[in-house]
């Protein structure tokens, strides 16, 4: 078990966004999180790397443990180094391809050219982008296509060598071919990392997840093996959402 969430409540001012979530995230699995808009799945994700701390009037109750350690007690920079994140939109920084990937390692004190070059190459290979960009690492990241930018962002996350990677609807703006490439990368990454994938696309969750968690109005309805969720869910609402009867 990599992460253990115990009775987690999150409030934004008077809005009760997460209502008592308890679950476990296992090492080297892809956990899919599905649910309609405002179900709390993104809030859940942003609680794990404490990006929620940036919101105004946010309040959290309960506990999140990573390797048995309370994430509120871990230095927040170190926590975010260990729990990386890929955002919904491809968000390259206005830097070159190389500097985007090297950004994280540089922030963690790596400045040797050779070392950075190795990290950049390794990360870009792991996100299946290396072959497409190896001849133009110094050109602007904005010149890449949307799908390439998203794989660049994955490489950038990998470059700081996290243990867990959070994907926040990483394919929402991508075409099917780019989506397939990102999914391929995720399946490969599972060997080394623990992945949490928030997605609005239930089929995507079915394709890549080992287990799936269904969120509804801030509650965790159920979490179970992917085939179980998609063929024989315990809760009626899960089945109804998956078959498209609401949401």
């Amino acid at each position: 078990m990599k992460i253990k969430v115990e009775d987690l409540h999150v409030y934004y001012g008077s809005i009760h966004a997460l209502k008592g979530i308890s679950m476990e995230i296992r090492r080297n699995e892809i956990l899919g999180a599905i649910g309609p808009a405002n179900s709390g799945k993104t809030s859940f994700l942003r609680t794990l790397n404490r990006l929620n701390d940036l919101e105004l009037h946010v309040r959290m109750e309960g506990q999140v443990l990573m390797d048995g350690e309370d994430i509120q007690k871990i230095n927040v920079s170190l926590l975010r180094k260990r729990i990386g994140m890929v955002f919904a939109l491809p968000l390259p920084l206005p830097l070159s391809i190389f500097d985007n990937v090297a950004y994280g390692p540089r922030m963690h004190g790596i400045h040797k050219k050779k070392e950075l070059a190795d990290i950049v190459e390794k990360s870009l290979k792991a996100s299946y982008l290396w072959e497409e960009v190896k001849d133009r690492l110094s050109s602007s990241a904005f010149k890449l296509s949307g799908g390439q930018q998203q794989r660049l962002c994955i490489a950038r996350t990998l470059a700081v060598e996290p243990e867990v990677i959070l994907f926040d609807e990483p394919c929402s703006g991508l075409d099917p071919i780019s989506t397939a490439k990102v999914e391929e990368a995720m399946l490969e990454l599972k060997e080394k990392y623990t992945l949490v994938l928030v997605t609005n696309n239930t089929k995507q969750a079915a394709r890549v997840s080992d287990r799936v968690a269904f969120f509804l109005m801030g509650e965790l309805v159920e979490v179970d093996g992917t085939s179980k969720i998609f063929t024989n869910p315990r809760d009626n609402r899960t089945g109804e959402y998956i078959t498209g009867r609401f949401g």
Binding site: N49, L51, L54, S77, L78, L79, R80, K81, R82, G84, M85, F87, L89, L91, L93, P94, Y103, G104, R106, M107, H108, C153, R156, T157, V160
Partner: peptide, 21 residues
């Protein structure tokens, strides 16, 4: 705002984020 979030999510500190992003 996304520049700040990206930088922070990579484990940069607040000041590093301001300074570099």
């Amino acid at each position: 705002r996304s520049f700040r979030e990206v930088s922070l999510s990579l484990g940069a500190t607040g000041w590093q984020t301001i300074r570099h992003a």
